[in-house]
Design a protein around this nucleic acid. Structure first.
Lengths: 234, 234
DNA sequence: ACAAAAGTGTTTCTCCTACACCCATGT
DNA sequence: ACATGGGTGTAGGAGAAACACTTTTGT
């Protein structure tokens, strides 16, 4: 069914946000925040955070803004995912959505605001979503999981300092499989992008691990990817 | 400088098209077609093929349509590249461009139409382009070159049947380095996606090579990528 | 002392690279 | 016969995976 000629195509920006949280069994898994639709169409259903693009706002800034509006947080990683524009993806007008995906720091996400119209759900067991948003989240998940294997984005879930065990826990949660601690250590060190802080993390009932810091400037200027950014303006 | 509030954001679709053609020295290199702007702004400059998105046309169909309009060809590979939407990328109105990139068969491209307002240029030595189109072509080139290394898109430059030497020539032209014929053969065969046709290519002054056909159904259902398509509707 | 996680060493396997060598055709 | 590219064989090296083993803390 063709759209009205006098109703122009509308442009929206949405963001798929990921954070790590413990599930019921206490294991870290991926969670994503959703917002409840308060207007027609699809009123009452859960949807991605987003909104119409203001004429004078950059795409990436709009994505960071909606992220902040729904979670109260700033993204540690933000990248354009894909643009969805199927003619029939919204029942009324033609809507083209430029979708971003973001990673937020896990301990901050634990304190994130959540009201009656904002709900965090496990990314692998989504409820019914509005429009084509389920497909979008699944694509973002796929991108996160493949990109974790060939880049260093995992550290975006962590704070300034972290142990290799904490970093490994991120990889295991994202990739959904356990990794050999010995080989993981060697691989990370060999990447050359970790710096020892000199400090140790005390308090556990065993040998205290070294603390590391992520150093993007170190090593390998190889094959840098255009148009991806970290810590964008929020 | 902020845009007028009463001038809404406009949505465009553009396509970066690649084909292989011999350069002055007879070596195959990447070429791309450009169109001359006949209107302000940036009148007279060369730009990417594209246009405003019709309300009832799918994004990918719009990309294939502009591709056909400027080259007379159908794409053998077509994929969304990125969406460019910087507030100041066009001097007058706010324009958001959903950009696709495409590969067309090389021997067809040799017969492609080219008028006074359509010009093919080597992709590595671009003239001055309108707006941010130079940056866009360079990003598309980067994507092509990285994607050739981990997918089987190279065959999109070729016809139904081809020899391994022809396929290797594609890789060498795209990657801009020579490859060991022996190892290249093994790698391609090991991918499992080539089928021998049983025929040989006669006529050359040496041992006639086997002809192969690309078979996407064969082998490896591994890590399939969503939202990419081959031979889209044109 | 002992448990538990941090961290190191070592072996094996697989894949990639380099390169020597044989094969089949036109001239 | 010989030049030329097609096609096969093989040795060496780099890196990943598996796993034994040592180190350092809290209890």
């Amino acid at each position: 069914m063709p759209h009205q000629l006098d109703a122009p195509t509308r442009l929206a920006v949405s963001t798929v946000i990921f954070a790590l949280r413990p599930d019921a069994a206490g294991r870290a898994v991926l969670w994503t925040p959703l917002v409840r639709r308060t207007r027609e169409p699809q009123r009452g259903l859960w949807a991605l955070p987003g909104g119409w693009l203001p004429v004078n706002e950059e795409l990436e800034v709009a994505a960071a803004r909606t992220l902040r509006a729904t979670t109260g947080l700033a993204p540690k990683y933000l990248e354009q995912l894909y643009t969805f524009g199927d003619v029939d993806r919204s029942p009324d007008a033609r809507v083209v959505s430029v979708v971003y995906w973001a990673l937020v720091q896990s301990d901050e996400a634990a304190r994130a605001v959540a009201g009656p119209n904002v709900r965090w759900v496990p990314a692998d067991t989504l409820p019914e979503l509005a429009f084509d948003h389920r497909r979008i989240v699944e694509y973002a998940l796929w991108r996160l999981r493949t990109k974790v294997e060939y880049t260093e984005i995992a550290h975006a879930f962590l704070g300034e300092q972290f142990t290799l065990a904490e970093l490994r826990e991120i990889y295991e949660a994202v990739l959904q499989r356990s990794l050999d601690p010995a080989n993981f250590r060697r691989t990370m060190i060999a990447s050359g992008r970790l710096r020892e802080t000199g400090e140790l993390l005390a308090g556990a009932a065993h040998r205290p691990p070294k603390l590391y810091r992520y150093d993007p400037s170190a090593r390998t200027a190889e094959a840098r990817e255009p148009f991806q950014s970290e810590r964008p303006a929020s």
